[in-house]
Write a protein that binds this DNA or RNA. Structure first.
Lengths: 235, 235
DNA sequence: GAGATATGAATGAACG
DNA sequence: CGTTCATTCATATCTC
C-alpha cells in the first residue's frame, strides 16, 4: 500500500507547525530493478526523456512508478557507479587487480551480464513511440525490448496484469476515487453515513453535491472510475 | 548573461584521498529559504543583478551567502518550477484517450504531503519568460514588501521591486469553485495555507492532489472556473 | 533499538 | 535555459 504516484519525498521540513508530511518513497519491485539494471548494464546509462517515459511504461507493468522515479534511479545509479569506480580507483595504485566486474549487490543474475552487446542504437532517440494509447493490445509492450532483457518480460502473459483480476468481485464492486484514494464500493446505493459519518458532504468532480437521502445513502449510486470528494459539512 | 563569480563549490574535484570535511556548498538556512520563497512567490522569479545583491544582503542577516548563491537559487528554482509545471501539464493534457478502463489495482495516491518535488527532465522551451517589463513602480504589491513576508524581514525598501511582477500574478482575480463554493483567488501562486490552514489537501476535479510547496503555496496556480476540493489532511 | 548501510529524493553548482 | 553532476538529506532494511 505504498505508491507515490508523484514521486514525492520530502526532505527537510522546517515546519513551523507540528506537521509530519512523511511520505513513503517509491520502492521498486524486484522485477523493476531487474529491468532497470538490465537497461543500465546494456549501456544506456542516461536515457533521454522520451526513453525514460518508455521505460516507465515498461516498469508500470509491475507496479506504478512515475517518470521522476525512473529519472532519479538512473541519476543515482550513474552517480554512485561513478563514485564507486572513483573510490576503487583511488584506493589502489600499485596492485592492478584483475578487472573486477563489480557485480551489483542488488541484482546480478548471470543471465543479465551484458557481454557482447552492441549498444549503440540507444542514445539516438529511436522512439517510434507509444503515443497511441499505450499498448492497447493485451500485453505487447510498445517497445521492441532492450538487449539482455529476459524474454519473459517481453510478452509472457504471466507478466501481463489481467485487467480484470477478479471477475467475481468485479460484478458487484467498483472502484471510485474518494479524495484521491481508490476505494472499493458496492454498486447500487452507497451508505456514506456508515462509512464516513453523517457530517460530510460529497461532491462529484463537477463540484455538484451528491444527493443523499436521510439515511445517508447515495441515492443513485456512484459511477465507477469517477472521482468524488468528501468534505466536512459546514454547520 | 551574468555569470556568478564563483560561489563555493567546484563541479569536479575528485578528492582522491584527503577528504576535507569542509562544507563545499552553500546550505541555506530556513529563514533564508523563507525569504527566497516569498520573493519568488511574489512574482519576482528572475531578479536583476542589483536586486540580487540586495537580496543577498538581506539573506546575510541569517548566514553568509554570496551573490552567486542567490543567482543559482533563482535559476534552479525557476527551472525546476517550470519543469514541474510542464510535467503536470503533460500528464493532464491528453485527457480524453479512449475510455480505456485502466484501473490500477496498485493505486494509492495517498493524498498526502504535497511537498515540493522536482527533477530534471523534460524540456520544451518557449514558455514566455518572466522578463522584466518595468511599469508599476511603487510596489504594486500593495505592501512595502513581498506579500507574505513576515514583518521582521520587511525593514528595507528592498522589497519594492524595481521591476514588474510576474504578469501571471498581476492583480487579476479569478473564480474557482472550492468545495462547491465560488471563491475569488488571485492568479498565480495561491497561499492555501494562510487561507485555509496547513492541515488540508487540495484536489482538482480529476482527483489529483494539487501540488503545494512546504509553505502552503499552490505551485502552479489554479485554473479559472475549475472545481477544487479541500479536505482535511489525513495524518 | 542504536549504528551501519543502501538507496530514493532533493538541491546547490555548474556545464553546453 | 535545459541538462548534468556532486553532495546532501531522508528513510527503509539489516545487523548485533
Amino acid at each position: 500500500m505504498e505508491d507515490p504516484e508523484r514521486a514525492t519525498g520530502s526532505r527537510q521540513q522546517h515546519n513551523g507547525e507540528g506537521e509530519q508530511p512523511v511520505r513513503s518513497r517509491w520502492a521498486p519491485k524486484p522485477e523493476q530493478i531487474l529491468i532497470l539494471e538490465t537497461i543500465f548494464n546494456s549501456g544506456m546509462v542516461n536515457p533521454p526523456k522520451d526513453e525514460t517515459i518508455r521505460i516507465r511504461k515498461l516498469l508500470e507493468k509491475f507496479g506504478s512508478v512515475a517518470d521522476a522515479n525512473v529519472f532519479y534511479w538512473f541519476q543515482n545509479r550513474r552517480s554512485r557507479s561513478r563514485r564507486r569506480q572513483r573510490q576503487v580507483q583511488a584506493a589502489e595504485q600499485p596492485p592492478p587487480p584483475p578487472p573486477q566486474i563489480h557485480y551489483d549487490h542488488t541484482f546480478a543474475p548471470a543471465a543479465l551480464t551484458p557481454n557482447s552487446i552492441s549498444y549503440s542504437m540507444f542514445n539516438s532517440a529511436s522512439s517510434s513511440s507509444f503515443t497511441i494509447d499505450a499498448d492497447n493490445s493485451g500485453c505487447g509492450f510498445g517497445l521492441s525490448g532492450y538487449p539482455g532483457l529476459p524474454q519473459e518480460f517481453e510478452q509472457n502473459p504471466i507478466f501481463c496484469p489481467a485487467e480484470a483480476p477478479n471477475p467475481q468481485i468485479q460484478s458487484q464492486m467498483m472502484t471510485v476515487l474518494i479524495n484521491g484514494v481508490a476505494t472499493e464500493v458496492g454498486r447500487g446505493p452507497v451508505d456514506i453515513k456508515s462509512m464516513f459519518g453523517a457530517d460530510v458532504v460529497m461532491f462529484d468532480s463537477s463540484g455538484l453535491a451528491v444527493e443523499m437521502n436521510e439515511y445517508g445513502y447515495v441515492v443513485q449510486g456512484l459511477e465507477h472510475g469517477q472521482s468524488y470528494f468528501l468534505v466536512p459539512r459546514i454547520p
